[in-house]
Design a protein around this nucleic acid. Structure first.
Lengths: 366, 366
DNA sequence: GGGCTTGCCGAAACCGGTTTCGTAATCAAT
DNA sequence: ATTGATTACGAAACCGGTTTCGGCAAGCCC
């Protein structure tokens, strides 16, 4: 009866697979197969191995497994840093969500950044090539997303934060922004608004298409006609939001309420309203989407549909892990709703469209 | 003459060390030693190996190296997510700095998060144990930093973002916040202010001690006496800043200017000033520190000393890499200055201390 | 010219795992 | 009882590197 050491009570040096094997009197191959659910291991042995491994605190070294399997239980996230503010406020929560869910299954997160789109692709390549990541979370899905194309080609698993028109081999998680936009319109309509404008985000993002559709759906549900002159977009920053608002206010028959696809842009509406001498929340109503903290500090606080970034990170991580483990992407598509966070930026219209036009003209917006 | 393949023109599969060795007609041991500067390789061979490896696009697989060497060219960063807003605005830039500098030397970044301090320590342990990180960047240095103690004990390299009293085996990078506080006082004094208050951050952070000293140094340089009743602290959020400001305004002989250690707190001063009917920038002057974007949107824009987080990330990454490579920590200590970003929140005093006291009393602050 | 270094490299062990292959033992079928 | 298939595991190769060890050849000294 050889090999009957009982090396329990592991000190600081790592417990290796051979330690577990020795303690059980089997070979490390057996331990490995038992832990990885190979079919040629008896149920009895599997249980014995499981128990002892657990008791000894054995955790396989991901990088050692990786040299044979090619996988190291690592998620990848490449952030694009040249885009306007966008992900800033959420980033911390988003990362917390991802790493929280990942570490629960003993996975980790590798983060990289890139400036331009080209650099983005080469960064993905590099991470794949150096096996620093088994798959990727792709935030900010574009309608035509080259990251997606590349990873499909390389046959590297990924999950989108956002949806996409061509769903071939795509897993995703997304917040139903279109529902929020729809609800925003209905809420404004119930306040009594009939002329409602829409300021969208950049058209390159897939979410912009969806939110626009949601706005239209809301208008239809409310029995209101969409005035195409009150639809504008490409507003991803506070400044762009201010300019877009000024354009709407300067129109012949300005809106009494505006729905924004992006909070940052909605904050610009505050600046524009101040210039025109209009009070946000009464003279002009604003509802937006994102739930950034600055919205809560604004006066009046911004009414917005807030997104739980931490939950998004968690669910994305879990989906990606299942995807990497080989599950069918078609079955890995989840969505959630944004949550209305009522502020003081919307209410019954205190002014008519004509009166607003007058104020705007007086402020020299026309 | 065996082994004379010339497997140039690598296709998609990785170039392995054995490919390089075969191409040169040497063993992989020789290639490895040549690339890692072993002394027992002739200069001629070393150059030949270098050139061929480069030409073939060979990059060693970090995880494969790691199983023998224990190191995988990976930096670690553990973010604490339960603390108020603090790092939010900078995080994206900070990460961009770290990963930019890291990837330039073919290193990567592993990010983890933790809620409490205890979880923080176990997360560090886990990353070290699973060899997911060769060393750590520790942001937000505390005066008594347990992370530091743990890593010292485990003999894992780290670099502080911030300085610390006990510099034993510590490398660091820091912004000289005390200099900024000093300059802030001098600027206010040159405006003509003589009663200047100070609102510090949380005392647990080492930077708070330093910034307080900087404030005192500035007062001394300006020939002004420090009134201890005008010194307060623990203001890390907008709300806390508002409350601290109210306390100062409610004092018998309130300040005409306040220096803040943290931008977020300074924004709270805007709220307090509004409540008291005081105009920031004239009735009451404010200068702060951090350079968060919200400061620029405030009205008037916040005068602040801004920190280049991207540069901080870059330098921290470079220092940590050198530290991991074995350089002496004593030689790895760098600092930089914050840069004054003038806004409209400071200027010559438009009111006396008595007048301010009157306004505060009228607003019911007393 | 013989012994002793020294420089330089090949051979092989090693790191901590996974996976293939072969085979002893068990079981079912003839 | 013999055969054939199955089960369950040991032995060993393997992944892509690093590091130790040993030995050949050239250089040095006397």
């Amino acid at each position: 009866m050889p090999n009957t050491k009982t090396a329990i009570l592991s000190t600081s040096p790592r417990v290796r697979i051979s330690d577990v094997a020795d303690a059980l009197g089997v070979t490390k191959g057996t331990v490995s197969r038992a832990l990885n659910d190979y079919p040629d291991i008896s149920e009895t042995t599997r249980r014995r191995v499981r128990r002892t491994a657990e008791a000894m605190g054995y955790r396989p070294l991901a990088q050692a497994q990786g040299i044979r399997t090619g996988r190291t239980r690592t998620l990848g996230l490449v952030l694009q840093t040249d885009i306007e503010g966008a992900q800033r406020p959420f980033l911390s929560d988003f990362l917390a969500g991802i790493t929280g869910a990942a570490s629960a299954e003993f996975w980790t997160l590798t983060v990289a950044t890139s400036a331009g789109g080209g650099e983005m692709l080469s960064t993905l390549q590099r991470l794949v090539n150096e096996r620093k990541s088994d798959g990727f979370i792709l935030p900010r899905t574009l309608s035509e997303d080259e990251r997606m194309k590349l990873l499909r080609e390389l046959e590297v698993p990924f999950v989108l934060y956002g949806r996409v028109a061509d769903p071939d081999r795509c897993a995703w998680f997304d917040i139903l922004g279109e529902e929020a936009m729809r609800d925003a319109v209905l809420r404004l309509a119930s306040h009594g608004h009939r002329r409602i404008g829409f300021v969208n985000g950049a058209a390159a993002y897939n979410f912009s298409q969806l939110r626009k559709e949601g706005f239209r759906a809301g208008m239809a549900d409310a029995g209101l006609a969409v005035d195409e002159t009150l639809m504008t977009g490409e507003a991803m920053s506070r400044n762009a939001g201010r300019e877009a608002t000024c354009r709407l206010l300067a129109s012949a028959d300005p809106p009494t309420a505006i729905v924004f696809a992006v909070d940052l842009a909605a904050l610009g509406a505050y600046d524009a309203a101040r210039s025109a001498g209009l009070a946000v929340g009464s003279d002009i109503s604003v509802i937006s989407y994102d739930g950034i903290p600055e919205g809560g500090w604004a006066r009046p606080p911004l009414t917005t549909f807030s997104v739980d970034s931490r939950m998004a990170g968690e669910r994305l991580a879990r989906i990606l892990i299942r995807r990497i483990r080989g599950e069918d992407p078609e079955s890995l598509r989840e969505t959630a709703l944004a949550e209305l966070q009522p502020g003081g930026s919307d209410g019954p219209p205190a002014m008519t469209s004509e009166e607003i036009a007058g104020r705007a003209a007086a402020a020299g917006m026309r």
